[in-house]
Design a protein around this nucleic acid. Structure first.
Lengths: 213, 213, 213, 213
DNA sequence: TATGAATGAGACTTCATTCAT
DNA sequence: TATGAATGAAGTCTCATTCAT
């Protein structure tokens, strides 16, 4: 109670700023994912965030700053599923969980998925460093787990990186190519039935494809 | 008659024009795939094509015209592999051939792949019509083939569209996310060994994943 | 009474304000002399004065206000040497003293010198009134002194105003063109030896140039 | 005749560009000398040059480019009088000629004089290199001449650089402080009588000040 | 076909200033 | 007195497009 009170009264200024920053970042994510960096106007974002262009620039010195902030903010979310991939439960359960998490991400953060996709397709000018360091190290660690399963004969022998690529590709596809999928099926992941069907198909094919037996 | 003749004798000017148009389209593909529609400057393309901006605009009235021309030119190439998917050889051979063709495409036309990917991710503003008509009809036809195989018990039961999506996702991933793949493996599809390894992995997982037995 | 008392006991707040105003004016002089009116940002001055931009604007309603305040504050200093030029000691001593005072000013207040120089070069938009009234009257008075000396045959006949211009020009040059002088000699008036040498040269040439005999 | 014709017809495009560039540089000189770099708007210059802002930017990529171009264009004019100072005619004639040339320059190019003055007062950010190399070398050479005269006993002993500074100061003053001079005398160098009187005063004082006898 | 010149509609920033606290 | 937040009016520069040759 006391805590709640304090929170409600103690930091009015900070609160205002933080709320605005969140609104800006949300609006920016949508805009950048939809039109790319160059194709997005600052004013567009400002309008969506409910403030003036100049005020937005009070919080973020430049468009590029804002773009980087959006990428950074999404980075943890983006890397989280892979971080949680572990060996504890054996390949079937672990891979199933990983694929399901990735699909869940595609459902909940499709714009973030598209933002990263576009960024990478354009040569990852703002992200190459992360790819080469943080992601590379993370992947190296996870590869060990998969190689362990292969050595135990529980997975078909293959370079584990191709397995990762295939999981990324298939799960992200439902976010990145949602427009195409909707044109061909009339549905998207937000449709509960379609989501379940998708999960079953993707998990099914990949697990049958890699598990021995 | 005269007209036909003229066309047949290939007037130098026309030829020159045709060569220029090709150079422009090539340069434009690279530029648009690399920076998106808005992120690309006409002058950039003109320079890459070895001519002045004004002269480029003599061939294509506007940037949007040029963009549409690039998309159109790539469309047949993009749809060709799916068109060639047939029932004649049975699921194993047919799907293998299809996947290999798609990978071959990712190797040979990575920029085209990225161009379509970006276009679709941004809502396919120039392509939605094609998706809803030409592609939808083509997919409908091919679905019949796959459903036939499923009915014969040769493929695991599933909505054939998910199979298509998975094949598209995995094969195109090697073109679209080439930057990321290179950051993690140091290689790309142009590397013969890596290409073979990729093909084996993708074909292997998917076939094992969908073929019964 | 209470009011008077309070004022007399120097309320801390008032004192603080006065100190702030001085800090602002100092910082503003440096900034305006270095970048001109338009070339100076308020925030720059505020930072140099150790306060927020908004707070600076609490003391000076606008940038132009501040600029005028700086000019006004420097005006007395600027005019002081000429005010002190008198006939009492004869031309040699009086002119020597005047030149030395002007040089001393160039040494102590080079920024003020540059501020006035830039203002005048740009047409004296904020100073034309002063030039035409206060300065003109002062000059008129001093001209009488010089004309007296000429009439007595102690100075070569000339329009006294040219003499004033030459003294102003030569003495202020060492402040205004300090950058150039430093590039050519490696020194400035703050160097005691260079100052002495300069004084000797300027006084020597001008006195020999105007004194008869 | 033939020549005139050729000139009139042969280089239309180049001519147009060159004429525009001259018009721009003229307008820019006036503007920069009057308001400084920051205080001048590109549009202002464009208007004075009789063209659109965008067209001006077709010739000069940026405001800074234009500013540098103006400085560069004026540099030769600015250095010319000193270059022509020679020993051939003895100190009296040579110094007289030099002073007169400098005054003539102040009459003909007062804006250039002010431009350089403002630039130097602000620390010569675009000119420091020239000051330290080209001008320094030129001055070094001319100092030799003056030292020669001093050694011959024809000039009072002094560091020749102070002599140069005094000549620069006094002659440029009539251009740089024209506003003040006009406020105090009602005249300027464009007034033939005032010019003559000024020349006589400046030459007179300096020569009497430095020549022995 | 080909290009230099010219332009208008943006789009990003900067900056003095005001508001609210 | 002091400051964070907010804004509008510039001002620079970019870029697709048109004009004239």
């Amino acid at each position: 109670m006391a805590d709640g009170d304090a929170a409600a009264t103690a930091r009015p200024k900070t609160r205002i700023g933080a709320a605005n920053i969140d609104r800006i970042l949300d609006a920016a994510l949508t805009a950048f994912a939809g039109h790319g960096l160059r194709g997005t106007r600052i004013e567009q974002i400002a309008e969506a965030a409910g403030m003036s262009k100049t005020n937005l620039l009070y919080y973020f010195r430049s468009k590029d700053d804002l773009y980087r902030a959006v990428l950074t903010r999404m980075l943890d979310i983006w890397l989280k599923p892979l971080r949680e991939l572990d060996a504890a439960r054996g390949p079937e359960a672990s891979l199933t969980a990983y694929i399901e998490q990735k699909l869940e991400h595609s459902r909940r953060f499709p714009e973030a998925s598209r933002l990263f996709a576009i960024e990478i397709m354009q040569g990852a000018p703002h992200l190459s460093h992360v790819l080469e360091t943080e992601l590379a190290e993370l992947v190296d660690r996870k590869i060990g787990i998969v190689n362990g399963w292969i050595a135990e004969g529980r997975l078909a022998p293959m370079d584990p990186r191709h397995l990762l690529f295939m999981i990324w590709a298939t799960t992200q596809h439902y976010a990145d190519f949602a427009t195409q999928i909707r044109a061909l099926t009339g549905k998207g992941l937000e449709d509960e039935a379609f989501f379940g069907e998708t999960r079953q198909a993707v998990v099914g094919v990949i697990l049958r494809g890699v598990l021995t037996r």
